[in-house]
Design a protein around this nucleic acid. Sequence first.
DNA 1: CGAGCAACCTGCATGC
DNA 2: TGCATGCAGGTTGCTC
Length: 271
Amino acid sequence: MPELPEVETTRRGIAPHIGGRTVTRVVVREPRLRWPVPRRLSAEMTGQDIDAVGRRGKYLLLATDAGTAILHLGMSGSLRMVAAATPAGKHDHVDIVLDNRKALRLCDPRRFGALLWTRRPPEQHRLLRDLGPEPLGSDFNGAYLHALSRGRKVAIKHFIMNSHNVVGIGNIYANEALYMAGIHPGRAAGRVSKRKYDLLVEVIREVLNDAIALGGTTLRDFVNSDGKPGYFRLELNVYGKGGHPCISCRTPIREIRQGQRASFYCPECQH
DNA sequence: CGAGCAACCTGCATGC
DNA sequence: TGCATGCAGGTTGCTC
């Protein structure tokens, strides 16, 4: 599912439709997600104006004066704007109904997503409290990653996918960024040079920004708030391309497992 | 600290 | 056609 570009695509898609509107009702059809949708969500949100649609890592934040809805799309979640009267499908968990007869509809077949509510500043919530910097922000840079990784034996791919170190980089973009930077995904994080970290940060920004510009990556079921897929899949160099020739040197892309996740890399270009 | 795995779920592709 | 298997964009939390 969604990594940062898909979540940001979703945020940009829904913000103009829900920002400034008033919630008239919240319909929870199926509260079972990663954690149950809180019973009090409807009472807390109804009547509130949505002041802002923010994002922290892969979490979407719907801010109101009374509190903030914290929304995560998990592996298979998507948000769409629908006419409030549109019949719900099988995996449509929640509708946040607005004062213009439209609704923000959360669909999540695999139920790895979440919809929570907090009255406190969301950055204090336990899910957000310990998150690392935003990859597109200025406090994410080569010096930061280099300093953080000294002495660490963990594989660089795990290191950049760990949200304590930096948020928003999932399996697709981790593979792509390491390919672009010429770093082997299994290399120990503590054995990557400052120069390579500078380059890695640069290509992470590039790949995320390019993916956002194309509406994210649709492998199977990601759709934006209009129900349309993202087109960054066409730009992928290594992810899902085991056996295909490297676009740079023609060596077949190798597929390995790191943990339980697939990694793809060029054995000639990445060290 | 780090490696590994189990958990939370459904859907789809593949192979027999 | 049916059934079993394995895999998928994420994250938490446990054990060793």
